[in-house]
Design a protein around this nucleic acid. Structure first.
Lengths: 177, 177
DNA sequence: GGATCTGGCTAACGTTGTTAGCTATAAGCT
DNA sequence: AGCTTATAGCTAACAACGTTAGCCAGATCC
C-alpha cells in the first residue's frame, strides 16, 4: 500500500498525494488506510524508507564492477535517474528525520550513503577528508537532481551535458586530493 | 504582509505556515488576507520572490570587493547563511516555476544567478563551460544548504568544516579549468 | 463451534483554504 | 462641504482533507 502511495506521489507530486486519492487508487475508503498506516506523516516516512532503499539499490547496483571515475559516473547517473523517475517518493525523503539509530529510515539512509562511500574508495582520499568528500558528493547529486526535478534550470544549455560536465568536474577534484 | 508570512515561515516551517496562523500574526481574520493575496499559492510565490531577491542581495553584497577564490568563498558562505537563517522563505522558492519571462519570480531568480555569475568571472572559464559551472555551483550550494537545513547530515564531522572544505574543493576545480 | 484477529465500512468532527456579501473608514472629485 | 468610490476589514458558510469512533463480515485459530 505504501508502494501504491509512492507510485501515486510520483505521478501527481508529493504535495498532491492525499489520503483520499490514495484510498481511491487502492479501491478503498479513506479511513481504511489507517488500518495500515497510523497517519499521513507515517505514510510519508514509509514512502521515504522505500525510496531510500530503492535508491541505495539503484546506486549500489550501478556501481558493481566499476571503480574510480567509472564508478563515480555510474553512481551519479543512477542516482539522478532515480530521482527523475521517482520525484514524488524522493521528495518524501526530504525533511524527515530518523527518530533513532534503529529507525528503518536511518538504516535506509545509511545504505544509500554506503553506496556512495564505496565509490570514494576508488580514490586516494585521506581519512580526514572522506566525510567531507561524501557530503560534497551528496550535496552535488542531491542539489542537481532536485533542481532539475523542480524545473529550476531555466535556460538553454543542455541539462544532461551539464550533469556529465559536473561528474568529470567532481572526478578531477577527487583525484587531485 | 508577505514579509510577515516569510518571517512566520522561518519560525514554524513553511509547511506550518497556514492562512489562519498568518492572520493571527498580523492581527486580522483569515479571510481578510485575501484582500492582499489571491490564494495561498500566491502567497507562497510572493514569499519566494522576496526570498530570492534577499538572497541575491546577500550574495551580491558579500561578493563586493572580492574576486576569485575570495569572492567564491564569500558568495557561498553568504548563500548558506541566508538559507540557514531563513529556511522557511527559502523553502518557498523550491518547486515554484515562473509563469513567463517577466514574472517577478523569474527576474528575482536571474538576480541571484547573476550574483553567482559574477563570481565565475574571477576565473578563467571557457564560454562553453560557464553555464555548466554555474549549474554546478548552484547545485552544490543549494544541495548543501538544504540538506543541512533539513538536518540530513547525521553523524559526527563538523558541518562548517565540511562547507569550507567544499568551497576550496570547488575553487581548485574552477582554477583547473 | 466459539473466540479473535484482520481489514473493511459509515458517520462524524476539527482544521484549513476559500468565497460571498456586508460595512466602516479614508481618499478623491465636483 | 457633500457625494462617490476604493480599501480593508468583518461574519457566515462551504468544500476538501485528515482523523477518530464505532460497527461488521469474513478468515484464522484453539
Amino acid at each position: 500500500m505504501v508502494a501504491a502511495g509512492a507510485a501515486l506521489a510520483d505521478e501527481v507530486g508529493l504535495a498532491n498525494l492525499t489520503m483520499g486519492s490514495l484510498a481511491k487508487r487502492v479501491g478503498v475508503r479513506a479511513p481504511s488506510l489507517y488500518k495500515h498506516v497510523s497517519s499521513q506523516e507515517d505514510l510519508n516516512r514509509r514512502i521515504a524508507v522505500l525510496a531510500l532503499n530503492e535508491a541505495a539499490d539503484a546506486v549500489g547496483g550501478a556501481v558493481q564492477g566499476y571503480a574510480g571515475p567509472d564508478a563515480l559516473a555510474a553512481a551519479a547517473r543512477a542516482f539522478r535517474a532515480f530521482v527523475l523517475e521517482h520525484p514524488g517518493r524522493y521528495a518524501a525523503t526530504i525533511g524527515v528525520e530518523p527518530s533513532g539509530p534503529d529507525d528503518p529510515l536511518a538504516t535506509a539512509g545509511q545504505r544509500l550513503l554506503g553506496a556512495f562511500t564505496a565509490v570514494l574508495r576508488g580514490y586516494e582520499i585521506a581519512d580526514s577528508d572522506v566525510d567531507h568528500a561524501l557530503r560534497m558528493l551528496r550535496s552535488l547529486c542531491h542539489g542537481f537532481a532536485t533542481l532539475q526535478a523542480a524545473n529550476a534550470f531555466q535556460w538553454s544549455a543542455d541539462i544532461d551535458e551539464s550533469f556529465e560536465w559536473l561528474i568529470t568536474f567532481a572526478d578531477r577534484g577527487l583525484r587531485a586530493l
